[in-house]
Every structure is written in structure tokens, then in C-alpha cells.
Amino acid sequence: MGQEYRRSATTVSLIHYHFVFCPRYRRKVFVNQVEVRFKELLEEICQENDWLIVAMEVMPDHVHLFLNCLPTDSPSDVMAKVKGATSRRLRQEFGHLAHLSSLWTRSYFVSTAENVSSETVKRFVEEQKKRG
């Protein structure tokens, strides 16, 4: 997949964010149906917000997400929406997560893909599961 430019009414942009974020206490919660449902929810949230998922890899205890966003979408807003919605829904739908007051830590890592190509970051994200 080549570079995908985003267009709004007044802007043409190419902004890629690479996020890494973890559940509280680095719990290994993203296994089996929880992983499947998390990916579905994430795709829904991204579609609702007009974010394009370039690459995503869900590990049992952390997530790599590489998104193409408009310049009006700040990384903190993206994480607030992703973490808020997924935490609430996963805790409602999976009884073993219901006792958690919050699924996610407050922190996250974010970088832009300006120093390396988006293809390089995409390959890195996709290779995470193969590393063991």
C-alpha cells in the first residue's frame, strides 16, 4: 500500500501516528475472543472518526496501532476515544474484565512517521507477533 493522502474540505494531509499502549499492570487480556472483539471495536471507532488503520497488531499485553489521521485529530484525542470506548465496551461484554475500574493505563507512546517511511513502520508493527 502506498502513501494515502487525506482530504478534508480545506486540507490535504499525510499524517501517520504510531501508537503503543498497554492494559493496566500489563495484564495479558487480549487473548481469544477479547482480542477479536477489541479489533472489531477499534475498526468501528476508526471508521466513525475517519481514521485509516494502516497497520494494527494486538499482543496479549499491548497494542501497536498505526493510523492515518487528519491534522484536526490530536494524538491525545485519538487515545482518549480509543481507550474510553474500548475499555467501557470490553468491560461490559466480558465478565472477567468487569471488576476493573479501567482497562488501560493513562500513558501511551506515540510517534509520527516522518523519519522513517510509513512502510517501514507498518512492517515493524506487523512483525511484532512473529517476535514472540
Results as ranks from 00 to 15, higher is better:
residue 73 D to P: 03
residue 38 F to L: 02
residue 62 H to L: 00
residue 28 K to H: 15
residue 79 M to C: 05
residue 33 Q to A: 10
residue 39 K to Y: 10
residue 47 Q to N: 12
residue 84 G to D: 11
residue 34 V to N: 06
residue 95 G to M: 00
residue 60 P to A: 01
residue 63 V to K: 01
residue 91 R to S: 10
residue 58 V to Q: 02
residue 49 N to V: 10
residue 61 D to W: 00
residue 93 E to I: 08
residue 33 Q to H: 10
residue 27 R to N: 08
residue 51 W to N: 12
residue 81 K to G: 06
residue 31 V to Y: 14
residue 77 D to F: 03
residue 83 K to R: 01
residue 64 H to C: 13
residue 89 R to F: 12
residue 48 E to K: 05
residue 68 N to H: 03
residue 33 Q to S: 11
residue 87 S to I: 01
residue 59 M to A: 03
residue 64 H to D: 15
residue 52 L to I: 12
residue 56 M to E: 14
residue 86 T to S: 12
residue 37 R to A: 05
residue 71 P to A: 00
residue 58 V to K: 00
residue 43 E to H: 09
residue 88 R to D: 09
residue 55 A to D: 09
residue 90 L to A: 07
residue 44 E to A: 08
residue 68 N to S: 14
residue 87 S to G: 12
residue 69 C to G: 05
residue 58 V to D: 14
residue 55 A to R: 01
residue 71 P to L: 00
residue 32 N to Y: 07
residue 51 W to A: 10
residue 83 K to S: 07
residue 33 Q to P: 03
residue 59 M to R: 00
residue 80 A to K: 01
residue 72 T to I: 10
residue 65 L to W: 14
residue 27 R to T: 11
residue 38 F to W: 03
residue 27 R to K: 01
residue 73 D to E: 15
residue 45 I to N: 04
residue 63 V to D: 14
residue 94 F to T: 08
residue 26 R to T: 13
residue 65 L to G: 15
residue 29 V to I: 09
residue 71 P to C: 00
residue 87 S to F: 00
residue 55 A to T: 05
residue 70 L to W: 02
residue 58 V to A: 06
residue 92 Q to D: 12
residue 44 E to H: 10
residue 54 V to M: 06
residue 45 I to F: 04
residue 90 L to W: 09
residue 86 T to E: 10
residue 79 M to H: 09
residue 88 R to N: 12
residue 67 L to H: 13
residue 54 V to K: 05
residue 91 R to K: 01
residue 52 L to G: 11
residue 68 N to L: 04
residue 93 E to G: 07
residue 51 W to L: 03
residue 38 F to C: 00
residue 91 R to G: 08
residue 81 K to T: 12
residue 40 E to G: 06
residue 43 E to Q: 12
residue 49 N to I: 09
residue 88 R to C: 08
residue 44 E to S: 06
residue 77 D to K: 03
residue 69 C to S: 13
residue 36 V to R: 03
residue 87 S to K: 00
residue 26 R to M: 02
residue 84 G to A: 02
residue 29 V to W: 14
residue 38 F to Q: 02
residue 63 V to I: 15
residue 28 K to W: 14
residue 94 F to S: 09
residue 46 C to P: 10
residue 38 F to T: 03
residue 66 F to M: 12
residue 48 E to D: 11
residue 67 L to M: 10
residue 88 R to W: 12
residue 78 V to R: 01
